[in-house]
């Protein structure tokens, strides 16, 4: 696929050209943090962001989503799809890889999700090589960064005064045709490689994946879980900020005169007590220890087990660091792995 080198002061023009075709969502500052939000120009974005509060999965699996509406006396109506093409600008490698993992759950199973498929289809992705990983990042360990190997339409890499823009799809080619820039040289590609090397030298956290599924299954009774359960607030922040957590609840909501209502999905979290509750109050993960073990185990342990069909042997975790950044109790899954290994 082709590429271009775009001067930083031409980026605004590129974005404005793109905005004629797409609704653009990019990283925007919110207080001390960042969120992916609708933007109208390059100036509204902060491409030096570290990570966003919610991951980009919110665009593909909305936090709350109507499955259908119904009338009590019969009749079902599926939500209408009105949204046009949209574009996520500046998605980091970890979050992009997270979408590729979610694809395995919602597109590649026996019952693909039509709404997810539609949103993936109509959403272009402009990825960004991460040149300044945060103190909580460990995508390199997970093989998901700092620069993505694919899955993007366009990949931008900051080369100092310019961006190297590489296309990864036909849609990406069309997008790049809108950009003003010069041809890519060998020096630019070398610049990208150097930027990646430099980024790699900045990682402070690591996870050793060797035999990790076995490590978790062998350590189901390790005292570390009990200790974590005492600290854990079961607040759900780790799950809701995770880019690959896909669990949801399904509920019915009646409108008041009770002639009809909606069946809807809402994000759910395995660390919450109600998540595993069955009839008559039975619960197979009543203890917080079992629930935090499920979250961490699913992300790093059995989530990566070769028998786990969802992710074809890959770990669910992409190393974005959000669950570490936002945990009020200071629980750090990379430290948990070290403890399990007795390090």
């Amino acid at each position: 696929m082709g590429g271009k080198v775009i001067a930083k002061d031409s980026l605004g023009e590129f974005v404005s050209k793109l905005s004629e075709r797409y609704r653009i969502f990019g990283p925007r500052k919110k207080g001390t943090e960042w969120i992916f939000d609708e933007v109208r120009s390059a100036e509204e974005m902060d491409l030096r962001y570290s990570t966003t509060i919610l991951p980009p999965r919110k665009f593909f699996i909305p936090t709350s989503e109507r499955i259908f509406s119904f009338k009590m006396d019969g009749g079902v109506e599926e939500p209408e799809e009105r949204d046009g093409p949209s574009l996520i600008f500046g998605i980091h490698s970890c979050d992009l890889n997270a979408l590729l993992l979610l694809d395995m759950v919602f597109l590649e199973g026996e019952f693909p999700s039509p709404s997810y498929a539609r949103r993936r289809e109509r959403t272009a992705l402009v990825a960004l090589t991460c040149i300044d990983p945060s103190e909580n990042c460990f995508c390199e360990s997970m093989g998901t960064g700092p620069s993505p190997a694919g899955g993007y339409d366009v990949l931008l890499t900051d080369l100092g005064r310019e961006y190297l823009a590489e296309s990864g799809s036909r849609r990406g080619e069309e997008m790049l045709a809108l950009a003003k820039g010069r041809a890519v040289t060998a020096a630019d590609l070398e610049g990208k490689a150097k930027a990646i090397e430099c980024a790699k030298s900045k990682f402070k956290k690591k996870v050793d994946l060797k035999g990790i599924d076995e490590l978790f299954l062998r350590n189901l009774d390790n005292p570390v879980w009990k200790r974590l359960g005492e600290k854990d607030l079961a607040c759900g922040i780790c799950v809701n900020s995770c880019p690959t957590c896909f669990c949801f609840d399904v509920r019915d909501q009646l409108d008041f005169p009770m002639v009809g209502g909606v069946r809807y999905k809402e994000w759910d979290a395995c660390v919450l007590l109600e998540f595993s509750q069955v009839a008559l109050g039975g619960n197979f993960r009543r203890d917080r220890a079992a629930r935090i073990r499920q979250f961490i185990g699913h992300n790093l342990g059995w989530g990566g087990a070769s028998q786990f069909r969802e992710f074809k042997g890959r770990a669910k975790c992409v190393g974005c660091g959000r669950c570490i950044r936002y945990c009020p109790a200071g629980i750090d899954l990379t430290e948990v792995v070290k403890e399990l290994r007795g390090i």
Partner: peptide
């Protein structure tokens, strides 16, 4: 978190 508020406890 689903409203994407900045966490007052952790961030502030």
């Amino acid at each position: 978190k689903l409203k994407e508020n900045v966490c007052l406890l952790v961030c502030e």
